[in-house]
C-alpha cells in the first residue's frame, strides 16, 4: 500500500498514485493536525500534491529522491 495512516501521521510510500489522493484528503479533513512522512516516497501524483498544498500539514520527513524533493520543497516549504 502506497499510503499508510497512523494515528497522527500519514506515511506516503513508493509511487503514490492518483487514487490515493481521495483517501489522503479524507484523512486530512478528519485529522486537522495530521502530519506527513514522505521518507519512502519516490513519486507523488499531482492530485496528492494539491491536497497537501491546500491542507498544509506538517511535513515530518522529506523524500530522498532529489527531483521530487526539489518540487515538494518549493511547493510545500515556502512560508
Amino acid at each position: 500500500m502506497a499510503i499508510e495512516f497512523q494515528e497522527k501521521t500519514v506515511l506516503l510510500k513508493g509511487c503514490v498514485g492518483v487514487e490515493e489522493a481521495e483517501l489522503l484528503l479524507e484523512w486530512l479533513q478528519k485529522t486537522p493536525c495530521g502530519q506527513v512522512d514522505l521518507t519512502a516516497c519516490t513519486h507523488l501524483h499531482a492530485a496528492n500534491l494539491q491536497v497537501l498544498m491546500a491542507a498544509r500539514p506538517t511535513v515530518l520527513a522529506w523524500p530522498k529522491e532529489a527531483a521530487l524533493l526539489a518540487w515538494l520543497t518549493s511547493s510545500l516549504q515556502s512560508t
Binding site: V18, A21, E22, L24, L25, L28, Q29, A46, A47, N48, Q50, V51, A54, A55
Partner: peptide
C-alpha cells in the same frame, strides 16, 4: 479543505 475537490486540478 472540506470544499476541496482533489481531482479538480
Amino acid at each position: 479543505l472540506a470544499e476541496l475537490d482533489a481531482y479538480h486540478c
